[in-house]
Design a protein around this nucleic acid. Structure first.
Lengths: 339, 339
DNA sequence: TTGTAGGCGTTATCAG
DNA sequence: CTGATAACGCCTACAA
């Protein structure tokens, strides 16, 4: 149809063809009330005939609204967990006419100029931003974002400001459920492996873990506690360490990725789960299903939905109350009762 | 600082404070040549003092360029493979001042209104688009995109138009390398498992596989050929089927995800790789390292870079010649020689 | 119910 | 070297 470089059709063109002013066309586009049905139909017809699409850029400039939401995430974490959160964000925001501007973290000295989050947001005039689980205190700029007037929602970080809020799971409960599950199976000697406690969820889980272990009169030696990393590699490391110890736990509570690494390490050593070790995970990541892992589920898709709705509320000056998502135990086959 | 709703600082403000016209400020911003160093510094100073950021929306409108690139992908495939491609895209495009508009596939009857790719692109005035491996012929709209004047680059689809091109690996070679590897270890009975042959890479690999098997006088029974899905689940399925057969191959060529599923299935049956079966994979996905899988690598990050550069070339009316990426064999521990 | 005109924040073309 | 001024395409009082 159009040759390259040819000006796209504008509201003026439509106005001329339809013999009305562009104000009228604009009103039709935005479905105003006070407008004659006849002219309305006429305008719509011309629009269709010419396959007209309003220029979003111009509209943004004029309305001071971009219908764009910035999505920030640490690439380190662009993993299993957020992969399952993002679809919820897409669906919710998409259905409201928003598009997602995807800002990956470019910290590693990338090309010199490292845009800050705030600058990126201002630069692109996003209407709001969603930030996926940065490690607490890792980003000094959080302060300025919090203090700014840009609506933002954090997932898995408990930061609050006048125009910001957050969504997080009830991680304390997650840990409680995990420990109670093991306790009910007769386990008393239990270890723990999770990501850095500088992450809020990991910190809360650990609190919940210790509290429940103590409350139920269970036992966890300090050397059975591993708190460094959220990946499978780390699971190998955990098993390596564990097997070199005199005393060993009969069960472990471990984040899913770590748990999977542990299971694989055990398999390679000719051991089995739960035969030689019971494990209950955190998160219910996709991969945990493949390993038949009993785990405490986070409602990831729903977190994406909740975060999006919360953000829209903030944008529209409604509630910005933080949201805590429920968690629950998914029983599969990685735990067995102890005699 | 600013209270909510307060107008952001504009080029006019800077002009006033610096006692120059906004034309001058604009020239400073865009580092024009003909401009006095003194006023230049003065303007820059004011800009910094007021933490001024040009409004990208206005700039886009004026320049008829959005510095936005649309990234389309089938969510089904937002998996291991593309996860490793996307960082290359981000880095390259990001370093050129482009931001990425992330359009996930919303086919599953989402919210009724399903924007087409083309419409999305026009609507947001993207300067170009990158499309990640849709299954061939799955999207009727490809035609209109191909015929349009919107620069686009496909990854893993061999579509070409006046303003479109593609990046793909030398998949035929991949398969050849895999088979030759097994042949050199003495294997003669070999099977095959990969995703649907409606995917161009899978189709090319299969051609390469069959050709090489025949050329080297190896043997592959029809029932040893599996071509359905790119996931681990499918690997389980493959092993289940294989073990029920009379005749079995001594080695398999399989896409990494499938291969991993196969390995796990074998482990669960008390068997080992390569002890009971040699496997060589395709892609060199991150996960293949954890499984010590010998595999034929695709340069994923580099594909992202290449696609981005190609797109920029098309945007700037330079070459739009398709790019074929080299592949090579990564030897790890999943193959052993046969006596 | 419709049209006029000004504004949104830049860039770009010319004069000065 | 610098500064008016007209685009860019749309929205929105305010008039008619």
């Amino acid at each position: 149809m159009d040759k390259a470089g040819v000006r796209a059709i504008t509201i003026d063109d439509i106005a001329k063809k339809a013999n009305v002013s562009k104000a009228t066309v604009s009103k039709v586009i935005n479905s105003y009330s006070g407008i004659n049905e006849k002219t309305r139909q006429a305008v719509l017809k011309v629009m269709r005939e010419h396959n007209y699409w309003p220029n979003t850029t111009a509209r943004s400039l004029s309305m001071q609204r971009s219908y764009l939401v910035g999505l920030f995430m640490a690439s380190e974490l662009l993993d299993s967990f957020f992969r399952e959160v993002i679809p919820g964000i897409e669906a919710t925001l998409g259905s409201q006419g928003y598009d997602i501007l995807y800002f990956a973290d470019k910290r590693p000295g990338n090309t010199g100029v490292t845009f800050g989050y705030l600058e990126k947001c201002r630069d692109r005039r996003v209407d709001g931003a969603i930030l996926l689980s940065y490690i607490r205190g890792d980003i000094p700029e959080f302060e300025s974002l919090l203090a700014s007037d840009i609506p933002a929602v954090f997932i898995d970080m408990t930061l609050e400001g006048p125009y910001t809020s957050y969504v997080i799971s009830d991680n304390h409960k997650s840990a409680r459920l995990a420990v109670e599950c093991l306790h009910s199976l007769g386990h008393r000697e239990v270890g723990y492996a999770d990501g850095t406690s500088r992450s809020v969820p990991a910190e809360r889980r650990f609190q919940g873990f210790m509290e429940t272990v103590n409350r139920l009169g269970m036992h966890c030696r300090p050397e059975w506690i591993f708190q460094d990393s959220f990946d499978e590699e780390y699971g190998y490391h955990v098993i390596e360490n564990l097997e070199s110890m005199e005393q060993q736990p009969t069960a472990m509570v471990a984040q899913d990725n770590v748990a999977v690494g542990m299971i694989r390490a055990l398999w390679e050593r000719g051991k089995s789960v739960p035969g030689d070790l019971s494990i209950v995970g955190f998160d219910d990541l996709e991969i945990s299903r493949h390993y038949n892992l009993t785990t405490v589920k986070q409602q990831k898709y729903e977190m994406g939905v909740a975060a999006s709705e919360l953000l829209l509320n903030i944008i529209n000056h409604k509630s910005n109350k933080p949201i805590v998502m429920d968690t629950d135990l998914i029983i599969r086959g990685s735990c067995m009762s102890i005699k």
